[in-house]
Amino acid sequence: MLALLAVARRTRGRLQPLFEDVTVPQLVLLDAVQACGREGIAAISAYTLLSQPTVTQQAAGLEAAGLLRRIPAEDDRRRRVLTLTERGEQFLAAKRGLVPDRLSAAWGSLTAEEQSMAVPLLRHLMELVSELA
């Protein structure tokens, strides 16, 4: 498991040069905001497996950069939900394809047998990690 975490960290480091204006974790957060930001910080935290304070801190930086906004929830004005700004939508659309393109090349270097073993294993590891959160 530690080896998997180390590989994930190295992968993130190798992808970072693709993004001069945000970090890879911030890009992940933007994706999560698009997917479930209207459900609030807790939903984004669950989606990304990041703590709520981390999501809140990262969101503040992305809000300052004009990529997202925090607005009061319609059902409870004390609670905040996150939405992408128009600039954030455009930014995410432009950057989203860069990661799969790079990872697709790595995936293509695996044999068919390795690919068939990797998918179920990765799904199982994700389930195990989700249980820890």
Rank of each mutant, 00 (worst) to 15 (best):
M1Q: 12
L4F: 08
A6Q: 15
V7P: 13
V7G: 10
T11E: 13
T11M: 12
R12I: 14
R12T: 08
R12V: 12
L15A: 08
Q16D: 08
Q16I: 12
L18T: 14
V22N: 02
V22H: 08
Q26C: 06
V28D: 13
L30Y: 05
A32Q: 00
V33A: 02
R38L: 00
G40S: 05
G40T: 00
G40Q: 03
I41A: 13
I41Q: 13
A42I: 07
A43M: 10
I44M: 01
A46F: 06
Y47S: 04
L49G: 09
L50G: 07
L50E: 10
L50Y: 15
T54C: 05
T56F: 05
Q57I: 10
A60E: 07
E63N: 07
A64I: 15
A65E: 03
G66R: 04
L67D: 02
L68H: 02
I71L: 05
I71D: 08
P72L: 11
P72T: 06
P72G: 06
P72K: 13
P72C: 07
D75R: 03
D76E: 10
R78S: 07
R79V: 04
V81D: 00
L82T: 01
L84K: 02
T85A: 02
E86G: 08
E86I: 05
Q90S: 11
F91M: 14
L92H: 03
L98P: 04
